[in-house]
């Protein structure tokens, strides 16, 4: 089954409706990759609320989709991992590195907006990939003198305000 992809401003939203087969995932990957380029999207949200099992294969696939999209210039946020599923995933040792996570769509959009904000103010000179790592919990390799957690917290704080000026402008870029 094909995964529907919606465009929302600068971001793309893909809602996975059922258990994905390999072909579906390949299709999703190519589709997202194509649209990220076409719409110049900076963020992709993959909603997995409908998945009752996320095994190592699914994780690997989601991670590789995210890594690929990162190379295409978009940051990926996974949304809607259920409590049970999250618990099983960590028991298996699956942690979705390089991917953001949020409770629901709303949160994910916020997460992406914060990230954009952060990029614009703090890392104007740096490339997106490096700044991208700041978004992940507890890792900030490029901030000497601060503990990872602190840096992360500070980054979150600074990133919090909505991108009042920046976003609308860049959204026009997207269109």
């Amino acid at each position: 089954m094909q995964v529907p992809i919606l465009k929302q401003g600068n971001y793309l939203i893909a809602s996975v409706q059922s258990a994905l087969s390999d072909d579906d995932l390949r299709l999703l990957r190519d589709d997202l990759s194509d649209r990220v380029g076409r719409f110049r999207s900076t963020g992709v949200i993959i909603d997995v609320t409908a998945l009752d099992v996320i095994d190592s294969f699914a994780t690997r696939t989601l991670q590789s989709v995210a890594q690929m999209l990162k190379l295409r210039g978009a940051y990926t946020v996974i949304v809607g991992i259920r409590p049970d599923v999250a618990f099983v995933m960590v028991q298996l040792g699956l942690t979705l590195a390089d991917v953001g996570a949020a409770l629901d769509l709303e949160e994910a959009l916020e997460h992406l907006n914060n990230r954009r904000r952060r990029n614009l103010y703090e890392h104007r000179a740096k490339d997106t990939g490096e700044a991208g790592r700041l978004g992940r919990a507890g890792s900030s390799p490029n901030r000497p003198g601060l503990s990872p957690s602190r840096a992360n917290r500070r980054a979150d704080r600074e990133g919090q305000p909505r991108s009042g000026h920046a976003s609308p402008r860049s959204m026009e870029h997207g269109r």
Binding site: E107, L109, G164
Partner: peptide, 15 residues
């Protein structure tokens, strides 16, 4: 402090 979160409506708190 943020506005109700929604991608379309960018807030002014950035100011």
């Amino acid at each position: 402090l943020r506005d109700p979160p929604c991608a379309g409506t960018e807030g002014h708190t950035g100011e």
